[in-house]
Design a protein around this nucleic acid. Structure first.
Lengths: 256, 256
DNA sequence: CGGGTCGTTGAGCCGGGTCAAGCTGGGTGG
DNA sequence: CCACCCAGCTTGACCCGGCTCAACGACCCG
């Protein structure tokens, strides 16, 4: 993550620009939104369970997770929040949302009060569309996670997740061609994939032995050696992430 | 489902009314939207994989599933679509959405072209909010499904799902106090819960033996004998479905 | 130097999968 | 009206992927 970003707005401008043409004014709006910023430490909660908080957040840097605790004490990680992601809007609609968002690494976010969101959406179809698109994409990722949990074995789950993270990070320029910084403990992987820590450990070993990945537990650098082979083996199809798949036709239809 | 609905609009009006106050004009919009209607037979696809179709659907009657096929031939059911549900909007944003929607029973839907959606949202904050809320709720259900698959055993998964369906059906007046018509084969349950057919069968038997449920495979009538006990046993908390949890504060914030 | 967090490995067990067979009831054609 | 078929349900026997328990190792930090 040693890249240099001149302003915090850049990552969001780049992300949105890949599927809509932003005007000068819209770019200025984004720059204003990203002017002030909140920092969270590792393991600190960003949104607490049952917090009534009508605002959204732009994730500037670092990794976060959305998770729920089940009655018997277990934790299920629902999704990863990566730089460039937007979150927290849905929660604001419910009095009680029983999921929480927590920083996995030091994190920087930009908070957007709900009234500002409404204001922005009213005044810019492009930005309104961007928000709609971000939510649609988030939903596609959740659906893929359901398939991963329901119909894949441990080896496939791990391979599939590692590929998804690679591609999501690449879209925001936070990964190399085949490697990235993976700040996850084996416990976090286990709680994401519905597996035990021990089995995650053994499955990672298998992936290493098969020369699918290289992972240095010290530096936390993950390298996917053969994306093609791993995609095949894990049943990975990155269609669900493609933002280029948004056609201008659809855009026009959707905004009327 | 022998209830009498004077017009198709009623179910949606009732649903939306539970968290926003609809104006006369908005009610007329809904009535117009539900004027014409498409019918699908059992097992017929409503939205095909990779269909580029910029429209949304209101589900009037019947059950449908959203699912994906995995490379090795398995099927994962991602969600159930019940009367009163809205679907198909997200798909319209992507060129390729790799999930499909299929009727489980005979189904009636109202199709809404994308430009009409945009038009409606522009002219009614209430209806725009309703759409936003419906999406948020759908996402909450997906998240709960992830927890179910990742951190619960077969017994809990089944119990949890049967309770969720009861409560969702009750909200649209399609279930009794503790029983409903469940048009699902054990294969459908298996593909939803990430289990094998055989194990679903045995687990249903356990639920019956424990006097948690009664289920007649012929009539397909399911009765949940002790909701309290089953909720406890399955770790079920219906918070994630509560629409009353939408506070007026939030509404005001969200629409600015 | 001691404690804490995370990773690693072995041994044994069990929840749930697989395979295979039989059952049941409704639908269809002769 | 019966014979057959077929989809869905049921049950038994066996197996295996993944879990649990337990111990140990490696590193970091105070």
């Amino acid at each position: 993550m040693g890249d240099t970003i001149s302003t915090d707005a850049e990552i969001f401008i780049a992300k949105f620009s890949s599927y809509v043409d932003l005007s000068e004014a819209e770019i200025r709006v984004i720059e204003e939104l990203t002017r002030d910023c909140m920092a969270f430490d590792e393991n600190q909660d960003i949104i607490q369970e049952s917090e009534k908080n009508a605002s959204a957040y732009l994730l500037q840097s670092g990794w976060a997770i959305r998770y729920k605790i089940v009655p018997n004490g277990g934790r299920q990680i629902i999704s990863f929040l990566l730089p460039g992601d937007i979150f927290g809007f849905r929660e604001s609609l419910f009095d009680l949302s029983d999921d929480s968002v927590q920083a996995l690494t030091p994190v920087r976010v930009h908070r957007i009060p709900a009234e500002k969101i409404a204001d922005i959406c009213d005044n810019s179809t492009n930005l309104s569309l961007a928000l709609t698109w971000a939510r649609a994409r988030e939903q596609a990722i959740l659906m893929e996670h359901i398939v991963r949990l329901g119909r894949r074995n441990a080896y496939e789950r791990l391979g599939h997740l590692l590929l998804e993270l690679l591609h999501r990070l690449q879209l925001v320029d936070k990964a190399g061609r085949s490697d990235y910084f993976l700040p996850l403990t084996q416990e976090v992987l286990a709680d994401t994939l519905g597996l035990s820590i021990v089995h995650v450990n053994r499955t990672l070993r298998k992936l290493r032995n098969d020369r699918m990945i290289e992972l240095d537990p010290q530096t936390r650098r993950l390298k996917i050696i053969d994306q093609e082979a791993l995609s095949e083996r894990a049943g990975y199809d990155q269609t669900f992430l493609d933002q280029s798949a948004l056609t201008q036709d659809c855009v026009n239809d959707a905004v009327g």
